[in-house]
């Protein structure tokens, strides 16, 4: 039997295992809810950002009670508006609305695929049926990427349909003919897939389900902010060279942001491919080390 047949069989079995537990609908529900919430947030933001500046200020500052807006704050608002006042930018944001939580979910699913074998004590059955443990990991990798694709597809269908109607209705056009917009949607898929790979590696590396999911979530949600502060401190007090600030791309959460955003995410941010390469690198590294550990682990 060929390796491909074997892999397809393992992936099919893993999908079946997912479908026959609650993980399946929890994951689907989480994808739906997070996409919907982020879509609403992004549409509301786009609605005001795409307006002329005075209307934008009126919309954003309507809670200010008619008092004059301080000049400093007004300047801040103008830079925000200038950054976001583009139908292409807003279309990109709206069409990839599910991403912020979606890639985290893809990562968590990867983690759960591996760690639930130990958490649910099914590892004995799994490794009896497939004693070559690297094949088990490879099968789960394929499954995680497949699930990431489905999640991206679901999220994108919702975002693009709703977003296109929304943008068209406001008179900005759907922007679906724009190459930059389409590339962003495609890169979004890459982000889902890469985070799923990262999740598999992370799950193989950290045996505890709770430990792995919590640390991955924390790393993802506050990683970028924490990294920005730490690298800023290093820059200010230790090494005042601008490459230090660019180097924060080594943090997975930062790498992910850099990879998917067509514009600069911070002043020294390196090109998109650097972010992608770093994230894939982490995924492979975690996967290889995790698989090596898993191969030697006693299943007792």
């Amino acid at each position: 039997m060929s390796r491909t047949t074997l892999m397809l069989r393992l992936v099919r079995a893993e999908f079946y295992k997912l479908r026959t537990t609650s993980t399946w609908w929890i994951f689907t529900l989480a994808t739906l809810v997070s996409t919907t919430v982020m879509l609403i947030v992004d549409c509301v933001n786009a609605n005001s950002l795409l307006k002329p500046f005075d209307q934008y200020v009126a919309l954003e500052a309507h809670g200010h009670g008619g008092r004059p807006i301080p000049a400093e704050f007004l300047a801040h608002m103008r830079s925000e508006w200038e950054l976001g006042h583009s139908a292409v930018t807003q279309a990109t944001t709206i069409y990839t609305a599910g991403q912020l939580i979606g890639v985290l979910l893809a990562c968590l699913l990867g983690i759960v695929l591996i760690t639930s074998e130990f958490h649910q004590q099914t590892a004995t059955t799994t490794f009896l049926l497939t004693p070559h443990r690297d094949r088990v990991v490879a099968g789960k990798l394929g499954t995680a990427v497949g699930m990431a694709f489905l999640s991206w597809l679901l999220s994108t269908i919702i975002s693009v349909t709703t977003g296109a109607i929304f943008l068209h209705h406001l008179g900005y056009g759907t922007q679906l003919g724009n190459a930059g917009v389409l590339r962003a949607i495609a890169l979004n898929l890459a982000a889902y897939a890469i985070w799923a790979v990262f999740g598999i590696g992370f799950g193989a590396l950290i045996r505890s389900q709770l430990g792995a999911t919590v640390s991955a979530t924390v790393l993802y949600l506050i990683g970028a902010t924490a990294a920005a502060s730490v690298f800023e401190l290093i820059y200010t007090y230790l090494i005042p060279k601008s490459w230090i600030l660019a180097a924060q791309v080594v943090v997975p959460a930062v790498a992910s942001t850099v990879m998917i955003s067509p514009t600069k995410t911070f002043d020294q941010s390196p090109p998109q491919w650097v972010g992608a390469a770093i994230l894939i690198g982490y995924g492979i590294l975690a996967g290889v080390i995790g698989t090596q550990i898993l191969r030697r682990r006693d299943i007792a």
Partner: peptide, 12 residues
Amino acid sequence: AVLEASSAHKGR
């Protein structure tokens, strides 16, 4: 092989 009582996922 039957090593521990079934080693099946509880929710399946």
